[in-house]
Design a protein around this nucleic acid. Structure first.
Lengths: 133, 133
DNA sequence: TGCGCGATTGACGTTTACGTCAACGTCAGG
DNA sequence: CCTGACGTTGACGTAAACGTCAATCGCGCA
């Protein structure tokens, strides 16, 4: 081996990344077409790096609690915009981030309430089971 | 007025309930066809009561953080099952409620992480704005 | 009695988020 | 050299969650 540290891989094909993330290659290609990720290319083949992986984990996380792809695209796109040098743009971004935060907090409350209800029903089940003695 | 307390209404038509909840009548009818709610009838017209309203709020809350209609149907259906008298059924229900709780908690973590990330990006924006002085 | 409003069912259209299949290129192994 | 595994694009299919439109019905009222 020429280098010293080549133990941890840092580049992946669609198939590899898809397998790692538990999605299909179709999903990765679809997200790319939708502008959510833009992996590099080796000739015609896609090459994903750590940044792409991180982005994908963000995307999949968002999906799990009901964010749509357009919503997710907006948020992941902000990682790039946050390094801007234009005060106007940074301010707009910051305002939007405030709105998004409020939206996410609202979802958090809805989720918490539902969780409470589920816990309550479980409690009723247990009491009912106790009664049957 | 014959009664003494007739100030608060307790029965609604599709149009009224839809307006109150911010959905369309189509949505209410669709949910009924999918077995999520089963309002009463006045002749051929639907009549919704407090229980139906509460159920609808549950449903809409679940939707906001990404639950599918089949998932929601299962949960709202458990309100009825929790009054069962069969030990076997109650136990199965209780087990399932445990799984659901775990699922909801996982979503909660995903949401919290995303919220953290969004807050971080906002922080970067603010620092960037400070730098531009 | 006829008008309009709101209700009904039924059928077809639409958007989102992929699944699936076809046709093709490419590279390592036997 | 040929096969098989994996990659590519393009096109069409599909499930979920409604939207939209048509045809019809019943009810209060001027």
């Amino acid at each position: 081996m020429s280098g010293a540290t080549k133990d941890t891989k840092d580049r992946w094909t669609v198939g590899q990344l898809a397998g790692d993330l538990g999605v299909t290659t179709r999903t990765l290609r679809f997200y790319e077409a939708e502008g959510l990720i833009s992996p590099g290319r080796n000739g015609t083949s896609r090459v994903y790096d750590h940044r792409d992986r991180a982005r994908m984990r963000l995307i999949l996380r968002g999906k799990r609690f009901g964010m749509s792809l357009p919503e997710i695209r907006e948020i992941v796109g902000m990682y790039d915009g946050a390094a801007s040098s234009e005060r106007r743009q940074l301010q707009t971004l910051l305002d939007r981030l405030g709105e998004i935060t409020l939206d996410l907090q609202a979802r958090q409350r809805d989720l918490a309430r539902t969780l409470t209800e589920v816990t309550d029903v479980a409690g009723q089940c247990r009491r009912r089971l106790d009664e049957l003695d």
